[in-house]
Design a binder for these strands. Sequence first.
DNA 1: TAATATACTCGTAAGTTTCTCGTAAGTATT
DNA 2: AATACTTACGAGAAACTTACGAGTATATTA
Lengths: 201, 201
Amino acid sequence: MSTSLTPKQQRFLTFVRRYTLRNGHAPSYEEIMSALGFSSLGTVNWYVKTLTHNGYLDRSKGPNGKRALTLIGEPTAPARLPLLGLIAAGEPIEALENAESVDVPTPFAHPDNFVLKVKGYSMIEDHIEDGDYIIVRKTRTAESGQVVVALINGEATLKRYYPKTNGVELHPRNPDYPVIQVSRNDNFHIQGVVLYSFREY
Amino acid sequence: MSTSLTPKQQRFLTFVRRYTLRNGHAPSYEEIMSALGFSSLGTVNWYVKTLTHNGYLDRSKGPNGKRALTLIGEPTAPARLPLLGLIAAGEPIEALENAESVDVPTPFAHPDNFVLKVKGYSMIEDHIEDGDYIIVRKTRTAESGQVVVALINGEATLKRYYPKTNGVELHPRNPDYPVIQVSRNDNFHIQGVVLYSFREY
DNA sequence: TAATATACTCGTAAGTTTCTCGTAAGTATT
DNA sequence: AATACTTACGAGAAACTTACGAGTATATTA
């Protein structure tokens, strides 16, 4: 970016990026120190100060935040994910013939993620309207409380997922709508977990 | 206060999630305590309080409810930032009447951040086109090399900021375009630092 | 070649925030 | 009343980050 990076600074940044990616949180100063072979925290601090000053790093929790290092800038290269199909409540998911793709915020770039476009107004109960896009992480399982894309007897739906001892409860994201009980007899499959939705402006 | 989780807090949340998933109901404080190796209920309570406060947990049965811990929709929570106005090169920033707001990637949720929409094609030199949105952190100062939203004699611009001994240099993000020299006589104000830009789909 | 930045390193001593312990008391259930 | 939990508080250890002072290489400039 600004003053271009020296090789050692690159190395530093690369380490932070990798670590964050792998562990879900940023490294501590001490971890950086031993990973990069420094023998003083001061050195780590020097890098952080320099890189922050030049706009490559940021401390997401304000000063004194622990494990708060976050990369910024990076080239704003907007990531693209495949747009796999159209989803409408109560219908099967409609696949698209030619694989389009759409720009998404970089943090969501991941090989297991894909995008669906919402069709019709039948999902307003989930605060999701016609034309909206949802970013989905492909998975067969979900944690309780996550918003999932699921098929019940072939019909698509978008709900919060609550497994119960003898079946599954699906809550719409709008409390005014009824809870759906899925029994053992129903053909129920989770297609993925919704990470994010964005709207066409 | 969208504080992010520390590793230990993650671990706590993960345990609650797993337990709930497997047993159909939430763990009691004591179960959490022994599972996570604490030797005091106070510790469990500390986590519950902290995580509840930060919006990761909820007590579904109100206060004093037993085994009432429930996770709150972790991934989705689409952050929204206010869309403060339109920016076009060479014009003042145009404020919007009704405060709209737009979905942004969660990491950018911060009270000091806001969004501007780019108008016209006069900023292509910065790789930013008509209709794009930029996320800006409100600040009067900037570090050398950061991309800033600035006003020069009332006219908006988007450039890399390089303070010099006797004035300021503004570099467009595209090296094919000329550098702007701001002198002491110019009326120069930084409005904020650009963190991110995203495009209309 | 000498002078001078620039990039980096070390050690150590604070300073903050996160996490833990213990103990005590409050609330619902049976 | 006994049982099974949740809530509250104070004190402090642990885990991390910041600040400072000084020193060594490696390039840039004069």
